[in-house]
Write a protein that binds this DNA or RNA. Structure first.
Lengths: 193, 193
DNA sequence: TAAAAAGGTTGAACAAGTTCAATAAATGAA
DNA sequence: TTCATTTATTGAACTTGTTCAACCTTTTTA
């Protein structure tokens, strides 16, 4: 599973053997069963994680106990509450495995060590945060201007590999609609052809 | 107006006199009149800008000619289409001055020069992108789970300095609702007291 | 300073999305 | 396999938000 991480890094920056192993040895592998929770709202997020197997959801729970899903993460994606992790403040988010999963974890101290000693790692995370930000901007625009039907159709098209592995409950929480309404959208699509 | 930029940088990283002036001389001051457009969808965004006076909006226009506002930027905020700028691809966004404004612009080449020669600048932009990302995540969660009334109330509370300077048309496009509906929300609030 | 343009409000009819409750289907654990 | 739990579907009543058109106020500009 360290190979997945090495491949991922190589796609963004070029490190020497020594740099690469120096960085990857800062990570610790953790096995997480389905429905197990890695982070609870209220706790400080002590890790940044690279998913090597399975799938996670990062979500918020509001006063009405409704869940809003910020993102899903499968193999090769990162999970953390970036605000809680970097500023060491209590998180507003939950992170939960929705499949049996494996994740490589790095602590804040070790990440800062990497930033201080491996300038290319600073670049890696700057570029990754930028990419994530661009994706979130696009999603924001879609949410501001599009109907649930359109957002659902685009989700399927953009993330077919997530779509296949997710329940409609999860997708509805990601789209910001009730699962009943998603069911009605699906019915309409099925009968339209 | 270079002083504003220097102060802003100082809040995030500590640079020597030489580093600071080496970086800030890469910027060029531009005066932009109200309603003037800095970036049109379809063009490649050739600048990253630091606002020193006035106000901008960064927005998208969809197939129905409706506008979705991604963010506003007043003094001490940055404007760019980060995707178009870094990857040199056609933008999907517009950037327009909504007041008479002044902005300090840096080109991609000069920004890369800064990244290569001033490692602290890489950190500056990583930290800023992270902050922006955290704010957008919170806004995303609000959009997924809250009604327009709640989003409007929170906008006023969180950004009173923007609220005072913005028309309801702009705020509606930011909240993702019609301006007529925003008007009805305002009416309801006014008569509730 | 008049005219035009832009911004704001209101109401009525409509469309999009929620809630609740009932039921069915799929999955998981014993 | 069986029972319990989770997930998905459907309908009816309701709430939230849109659209369009009319009208009024404020700001800009010739």
């Amino acid at each position: 599973m360290y190979q997945l991480l090495c491949d991922h890094i190589e796609q963004h920056v070029h490190l020497t053997e020594a740099e690469l192993s120096g960085f990857t040895t800062l990570f610790e592998l953790k096995t997480v069963g389905k429905k197990q929770i890695l982070l609870k709202a209220g706790e400080v997020c002590r890790f940044e994680g690279f998913v090597t197997r399975g799938m996670f959801r990062v979500y918020h729970i509001d006063k009405n106990a409704a869940e809003q899903i910020l993102y899903f993460a499968i193999e090769n994606w990162w999970i953390t509450d970036i605000d809680s992790f970097t500023n060491e403040r209590p998180s507003q988010l939950f992170i939960e495995a929705i499949e049996d999963s494996e994740v490589l974890l790095i602590s804040k101290k070790d990440k800062e060590f990497a930033y201080a000693n491996l300038p290319k790692i600073e670049k890696l995370f700057r570029v990754m945060t930028q990419k994530t930000h661009v994706a979130l901007q696009r999603r924001m625009i879609d949410n501001l201007g599009k109907t649930a039907d359109q957002r659902y159709a685009e989700f399927i098209e953009r993330y077919p590999q997530l779509f296949r592995r997710l329940s409609n409950l999860q997708i509805a929480a990601y789209l910001g609609i009730s699962h009943e309404f998603l069911s009605k959208i699906r019915n309409k699509i099925a009968h339209k052809k």
